Simulated assay, not measured.
Amino acid sequence: MSEAPHGAPIKTPGQLIAAIIAGFAVPIVIIILLAYYVDNTTRTGAGTDELSTEQVAARIAPLAQVSVHDANAPRVYKTGEQVYQAVCAACHASGAAGAPKFGNSGDWAPRISQGFDTLVKTALAGKGAMPPRGGTSPDDYSDYEISRAIVYMADHGGANFQDPPQPAPAAAAASTAPASGADAAASAQAAAAAAAIAAIPKESAAPAAGGAGQSADASQAGKALYQQVCQACHAAGVLGAPKFGNKDDWAPRLKDPMDKIYNYALHGKGQMPPKGGSSATDDQVKAAVDYMVSAAK
């Protein structure tokens, strides 16, 4: 069985001319469209803006930032609204994780009925999904500022609380964090020592101490300075200080010559500041060292 002969697709001169024109025109149109597409497409890739001012500044920015504060400047407390906006709104604005929604009296009524003190304790200690202090630290916001935020939120939920009284300057420093255990004892002793430093005689100087042969005046001066400053740590052995009168604590220290022991007391060692943090004279400090050494022999 024979097959029928295949016919050529181009049978006329017009078809030939059309095929030739299409062979040139179609690739040209495709190239033009690709060029247009590439030119009008926003290209983003590595290195396209790496030399811009913003990118260079971001690369050379330091990892740490230094914030300098004047320790003697009066503290400016945040308002309840400011603390709420910075910390509490993350959950209380929408009522996330079961938090009473801001301005919703139905959510706040059972909390308000517990009283202001209970609300503050809950905020400081945390409850349920809420972390203590809303996830902040005492260095970020004091107890007083947290209390003001409680008043702000509760009052918008139907309460009629008043802002707590602003703490006195001395109390403000002590109330930034609740201390416990050894930290509380150390803080109390440090506060007592700071108060005692102010009472140290500034003008009178005891005669130079000389160990076992120190004079009665030097001994009294050493005892006075010990009671005013040194005992804050040495009476109980706080922060690794050799305990007053404890021979075992003092034995390793007494292996060194007295000049070296004096040098530790005058210039500080470990967590002990120079002169115990006082402004006593060198002779007074040496007399206090002699007084403690005598008690440990």
Score class of each variant (00 low, 15 high):
residue 185 A to K: 14
residue 199 A to H: 12
residue 163 D to P: 04
residue 174 A to M: 02
residue 121 K to C: 03
residue 211 G to N: 10
residue 213 G to Q: 15
residue 134 G to D: 01
residue 210 G to P: 04
residue 173 A to T: 08
residue 212 A to E: 15
residue 176 T to F: 06
residue 182 A to D: 14
residue 216 A to N: 13
residue 130 M to H: 05
residue 205 A to H: 11
residue 182 A to E: 15
residue 191 A to C: 03
residue 172 A to L: 08
residue 136 T to S: 13
residue 221 A to F: 09
residue 207 P to T: 07
residue 220 Q to R: 12
residue 125 A to D: 14
residue 163 D to S: 09
residue 134 G to L: 03
residue 164 P to Q: 15
residue 157 G to R: 06
residue 202 K to E: 13
residue 177 A to R: 11
residue 213 G to E: 15
residue 196 A to E: 13
residue 161 F to S: 05
residue 179 A to L: 10
residue 174 A to L: 12
residue 206 A to Y: 07
residue 198 A to Y: 10
residue 173 A to Q: 14
residue 178 P to S: 14
residue 208 A to D: 15
residue 188 A to K: 10
residue 187 S to E: 15
residue 214 Q to K: 01
residue 221 A to T: 08
residue 165 P to V: 03
residue 118 T to L: 00
residue 202 K to H: 11
residue 120 V to Y: 03
residue 187 S to M: 12
residue 184 A to F: 03
residue 173 A to D: 15
residue 183 D to F: 00
residue 133 R to I: 06
residue 183 D to W: 04
residue 197 I to W: 10
residue 154 A to S: 07
residue 161 F to Q: 05
residue 201 P to Q: 08
residue 122 T to M: 10
residue 133 R to V: 02
residue 130 M to S: 02
residue 144 Y to L: 00
residue 156 H to K: 06
residue 215 S to W: 03
residue 164 P to M: 08
residue 139 D to T: 08
residue 194 A to K: 11
residue 137 S to G: 11
residue 211 G to K: 09
residue 204 S to C: 12
residue 162 Q to T: 05
residue 124 L to A: 04
residue 145 E to Y: 01
residue 157 G to K: 06
residue 128 G to N: 10
residue 163 D to G: 01
residue 126 G to T: 04
residue 151 V to L: 06
residue 141 Y to L: 06
residue 199 A to C: 09
residue 166 Q to R: 06
residue 216 A to T: 15
residue 183 D to P: 03
residue 211 G to M: 09
residue 199 A to Q: 12
residue 190 A to G: 13
residue 219 S to P: 06
residue 143 D to E: 15
residue 186 A to T: 12
residue 219 S to L: 13
residue 221 A to K: 10
residue 162 Q to V: 01
residue 127 K to C: 06
residue 127 K to M: 13
residue 151 V to E: 02
residue 176 T to H: 10
residue 146 I to D: 01
residue 185 A to M: 14
residue 167 P to Q: 05
residue 128 G to L: 00
residue 177 A to T: 13
residue 208 A to S: 13
residue 167 P to F: 02
residue 157 G to C: 06
residue 214 Q to I: 00
residue 203 E to K: 12
residue 157 G to Q: 04
residue 192 A to L: 11
residue 161 F to M: 05
residue 160 N to F: 01
residue 221 A to E: 06
residue 158 G to Y: 03
residue 164 P to T: 06
residue 151 V to H: 05
residue 129 A to W: 01
residue 125 A to K: 14
